[in-house]
Design a binder for these strands. Structure first.
Ligand code: MN
Ligand code: MN
Ligand code: MN
Ligand code: MN
Lengths: 222, 222
DNA sequence: AAAATTTTTTAGATATATCTAAATTGCTAT
DNA sequence: ATAGCAATTTAGATATATCTAAAAAATTTT
């Protein structure tokens, strides 16, 4: 068993590829990676070759890449670190959930197994990060809560917000404003045929209209 | 006022130069820097030119370098981060004081003013790190406790350990073993003419003999 | 099935951070 | 004062990570 050592840039690419490949482990295209990481396709091709040589992805020219067994292990460790750090920032340092992503993007690359072990312990072995995303354990195991995007709910469906898909500051600030925090109770009141926007009731108090796009980025219990 | 952006490597060099220049702000030689950072003199010359162009050091060929006003500010911010993180690791994550240096060496480069502000707050604005070194505040201000190296004490001198000079794991483990932790009470019993080793009494309990080298790396109150 | 378009790769640069070996400068001891 | 040695710099490589522009392959449209 050879250990894989990855640079910051390599970890970022691998994580992006892992996220893009999704549950069905689709092959990921060069352009998709470039878009995610705000780099150019040519840079992606270069990096893809390096990652392929290290065995963390499989690559066929012009056919996109897939994450290998080993690559998934490595990607999940980066994801684990990212989410543990986000949890630390919110729980211990009182960051708002829209302020943590950029910093975690840096912290996730710190190399120290002991640090992560102790951080996990310090946080009480959290299972979900501030955005509702599951935190993989040291073996890469995790489970998501059963959930459905608001946009896919039928009228009358009622549930509790369990996660947000987009973790960008502008989106989270909007979610804050309407009060649809993780844990908020939501009922789908009406769906507008014209633009698929939704009318929802939040915490039995407030009725708001949300766009289709917003509705696709908030997950609630089934 | 132009803000200075430094890479990891640049921060490491600047910090090393700052430490090497000492209180008297001596010019620092190329070889001294290379030794400290385990690099080669040629690499140091290259980096020196970059740091000089950025205005954080002043450089005269063949004459060594001095840290500028701006450079000192920048160096102290890196030192501040290093020592705050070390404090965090010991106080919150239960690291031993001999386990923190390497990790802090990485964490000190994370760029986020908010993170450091909140970390400082979370730790209760500590004034000293686990090795007894003073933690600069956000303006770079700090004060060391009045102190004297054990090796410079006269026979009969009594004081409390306030800091250790060497922060390497082997040295700290030795200090642990003899029980000369920060805060331990120490009395100089005798000094051996032959090799300048010392006989000391620790916490009124235990008498141990320490080498000259060790005695130069432990500071106690005057 | 060809043509047009899009996607991907290659070729050739640039920037950072290192290194070894050779040249140069500075210091010291005769 | 100068010869010799030590310290430093320069020259020329290597490795990583990025880019633009051009070429090649795949896909889509006609
Ligand atoms: Mn990252
Ligand atoms: Mn998250
Ligand atoms: Mn460092
Ligand atoms: Mn320290």
């Amino acid at each position: 068993m050879k250990e894989i050592k990855l640079s910051f840039a390599e970890e970022n690419y691998l994580k992006a590829i892992y996220h893009l490949s999704g549950d069905d482990e689709q092959a990921v295209s060069t352009n998709a990676i470039a878009d995610t990481l705000n780099t150019k396709a040519a840079s992606v091709t270069d990096m893809i070759k390096k990652l392929s040589n290290k065995g963390v992805i499989s690559y066929q020219k012009y056919r996109g890449v897939k994450v290998s067994e080993m690559g998934q292990k490595a990607a999940l460790q980066v994801v684990r670190k990212h989410r543990l750090w986000e949890t630390f920032l919110v729980e211990k340092l009182k960051f708002n959930w829209d302020e943590v992503h950029e910093v975690a993007e840096q912290l996730e690359h710190i190399k120290s197994p002991l640090l992560i072990k102790r951080l996990d312990e310090f946080l009480g072995y959290p299972k979900y990060d501030p955005h509702g995303d599951p935190i993989p354990d040291e073996f890469g195991e995790f489970k998501s809560k059963p959930r459905v995007a608001l946009g896919d709910c039928i009228i009358g469906h009622e549930g509790v917000v369990v996660a947000v898909k987009d973790a960008s500051a502008p989106f989270l600030q909007y979610v804050d404003k309407i009060g649809a925090y993780i844990g908020a109770k939501i009922k789908v009141i009406d769906k507008v045929e014209f633009d698929s926007s939704l009318e929802i009731l939040i915490d039995n108090k407030k009725t708001v209209f949300i766009s289709k796009e917003v509705s696709e980025n908030i997950w609630i219990t089934e």
